[in-house]
Amino acid sequence: MKKTKLLFGMGILAVVGAVLVAADHIDAPGTTGNTADIADFYGFESPSNPDNTVFIVDLQTNVLEDLAYGTFDENVLTEINIDTDNDLIEDLVIQAIPRRDTMYFFGPFEPTMTGKNSEVMIGSPLGQVAISGESALTTTTETGISLFAGPRQDAFFFDFGQFNKVIGGTAPEGFLPEGEAVDTFDGANTMALVLEIPNSVLGETTATNALGLKVYKTWVTTNRKQ
């Protein structure tokens, strides 16, 4: 695979937290319906190893259960950006890009350029995993990094109908309590990228969340090939 220059981040989600979530389920027409569309970004301490961090990037929000599984776009590069000196500029980058039935991961590395322009850094391989279909396939590298790429059920719970009523002023009762709210995304899938990676590879934490815990300052971008 050649080093490829990519331009123009098609979407971005930014988060800071020990258990962190960001969501964006309605994107611009140019990204909706393909894996340039960032739906959710999660980051949290590994349940099985407190010295590891798990990153989950959910792409393409409209992969419905009764439709064919979506596919990763080979012209789209997904990047997890990490700020290690608190200046809101990426200092480390983890990349994921598909080729046929395999997802290739690279990094973490110091990027040669920041902002909208990116290069696939094939000189910094992190690992690769077969893209899952109906079965969930996970690869763990020799360095203890676990990787997954494929469809997963959408974990984002949101009562979109009630939200519209609240915004429209037709729901004086406000949002519905647990047990009454309807999960609009129940049964829908996303195309997910999942990494579990040792904190020693990610460097020092640079932010403090609302609970007073030291965390990574990180965000996700997708870039389409120029």
Rank of each mutant, 00 (worst) to 15 (best):
M1V: 15
K2P: 14
K2V: 13
K5V: 04
L6V: 14
M10N: 04
G17S: 04
V19H: 15
V21I: 02
V21T: 04
V21G: 00
I26Q: 02
A28N: 12
G30E: 11
T32I: 06
F44D: 05
P47L: 09
P47Y: 14
P50I: 11
D51K: 10
N52Y: 13
V54T: 13
V54G: 01
I56Y: 00
I56L: 05
V57H: 03
D58Q: 05
L59P: 01
E65D: 15
E79F: 00
I80R: 05
D83E: 02
T84L: 02
N86C: 01
D87P: 02
D87G: 02
E90T: 11
D91T: 04
V93I: 15
Q95R: 07
P98T: 10
D101I: 09
F109C: 01
E110W: 08
M113P: 01
T114M: 05
K116D: 14
S118K: 15
V120I: 10
S124W: 15
P125C: 07
G127Y: 10
I131P: 00
E134L: 07
I145Q: 01
F148D: 10
A149P: 01
A149S: 03
P151D: 11
D154E: 14
A155F: 07
F157K: 08
F158C: 00
D159H: 07
F160D: 08
Q162W: 02
N164I: 11
N164H: 14
K165L: 09
V166R: 05
G169A: 08
A171Y: 08
E173R: 12
E180A: 07
D183Y: 12
F185T: 04
F185Q: 05
D186S: 13
A188H: 10
A192I: 01
A192W: 06
L195P: 00
E196L: 02
I197E: 03
N199V: 03
E204V: 13
A207M: 14
A207E: 14
A210D: 13
L213A: 10
V215C: 06
K225G: 01
